[in-house]
Design a protein around this nucleic acid. Sequence first.
DNA 1: ATAGTATACGTACGGTGTACGAGCCAGCGA
DNA 2: TCGCTGGCTCGTACACCGTACGTATACTAT
Lengths: 216, 216
Amino acid sequence: MSAREQRQVASDAGLSKQRVVVEAVRLADREGVDGLSMRRLAGALGAGAMSLYHYVASKEELLDAMIDIVFEEIELPPEETDWQSAMRRRAVSARQVLARHPWAIGLMESRTSPGPANLRHREAVTACLRRAGFPVLMATHANWLLDSYVYGFALQEASLPFDTADELADMAEDVFLPQLPPDEFPYLNESAAALVAAGYDPAEEFIFGLDLTAVL
Amino acid sequence: MSAREQRQVASDAGLSKQRVVVEAVRLADREGVDGLSMRRLAGALGAGAMSLYHYVASKEELLDAMIDIVFEEIELPPEETDWQSAMRRRAVSARQVLARHPWAIGLMESRTSPGPANLRHREAVTACLRRAGFPVLMATHANWLLDSYVYGFALQEASLPFDTADELADMAEDVFLPQLPPDEFPYLNESAAALVAAGYDPAEEFIFGLDLTAVL
DNA sequence: ATAGTATACGTACGGTGTACGAGCCAGCGA
DNA sequence: TCGCTGGCTCGTACACCGTACGTATACTAT
C-alpha cells in the first residue's frame, strides 16, 4: 500500500486547495479562528503541516480564501423580482451566513483585497440596483449603506455572549445584572429586563432595522 | 542610580495599567494588531515582557482594556440638544474614533464582555433615547440599528486599501481595473470610474447613509 | 532589624508560521 | 527498460509567540 493510499484511508481523498480551505472553514466554525493553526488543519486533513503550502501560499492567503468561501454561500439578489425584495433576500441571506461563520466578520478588517466570489457578489448587487434605475453614484451609496447595516449587525450578533432567548435570560440574571448597579445604569437595567421579558430573536431584530433603512 | 531610576530614564515614568494599555493602543495604531506582542509592547515601554503581567492578567485582558479605551474616546451624546442631533454627533464621533483605531473593529467580534467605558456609553445613548420619549424596546431597536450602521461602516472603511481620494485614483488604475475584466464586471467598472471621477470622502459617505437611516 | 508586600524580570516550555531541502512516485522520452 | 523530470509530501529548524514559575530588589510597617 503506497503512502498516498494510506493517506486516502485517513482522509478520504487527496488534498486540493478546495479541500484545504473547506476544512479550514469547518475548523474555524468549530473552534474559532484562534484555534485554526496550520498544524491542526493539516492534522484534520490527515496530512503534514507543510503539505498545505502546496495549495496555499501562506496563512494569509488561506484566510482570504476562507472569506471568499463565505461570500460564495451568500445568495445573489434574485433577478426575477423587484429590486427591494431582491436586496432584502440577499441581506437576509448574508446575515444568516455571517452568523454561521462568526469568525469571518472579524477577519474582514485586516483583509483588503476582495476574492472572486466577493467581486461576483458585488457585481450582481450593483447590477440589480443599476437595472432598477439607480444612478451610478446612488447605487454605490445604497451598497455602502446596506453592507454597513449587514456587517455591523453581524458584528454585534457575533459579539453577543448568548445564542438563544433562554440563554439571554440566564445570563441576564447571573452575569449582566450583577455588573450593572441600578443607580449607575438605570436605563440599561430597564432595557435588560424588557429584553428578557420580550424575548430576543436576532432574525426579527435584523428585519426590523432593515425596514427602517430608507433605501428599501 | 537605582534600577527604578534607570527605567525612568528609559521610559519616562513607572509602569501602570493605564500606561501599558495606552502604549498598546499606540502600538496597534502604528503597526496593526498583529504587530502587537507582549515583548514588543514591553520594549516600547522600556520594560521586560513579564513585567506587563503585573498590570494585566493576560493578553486577552489587555485587548479588552484597549477596546475600552477606544470607547472612552467616543463622544457621549450631548444632553443639551434634541435627540436627533445628539445621536448624530455621537455616531460621527464613533466613526472618527474607529477610523483612528482600525484594529478595534476587528477585535470586537471575539471580545464578548463590555468594559466600563462601553457600558457608560450604552447607558448614555439609551438614556438619551428614553428621555426623548422612545419606548423601551424601541430604544433598543434604534440602538441596534445605529450601532450596526456605525460598526459596519467602520468595518468597510477599515478594509479599504486606500486612505485618500488620490490613492483611490492611483489604485483604481493600477490595481483594481486590471483585476476587473469589463465584460465580466461591467457595473463594477462603471462604479469604479464614477467613484474616481467624483472623488471619495468616507466622512461624506457616512453622513449620507446616516441621513437615510429612518430613525433619525 | 524584620517581615511583608509591591514591582520587575530571566528563564523555559509548548505552541506558532514557514524557509529549506530531502524524499517519494507517476509519467514519459530514449 | 532505464533514467529523468516534475509534482507532491513532509521532517527539520528557526524565530517568535503567550505565559508559568521562581527570584531579585526596593519600599513600608512594625
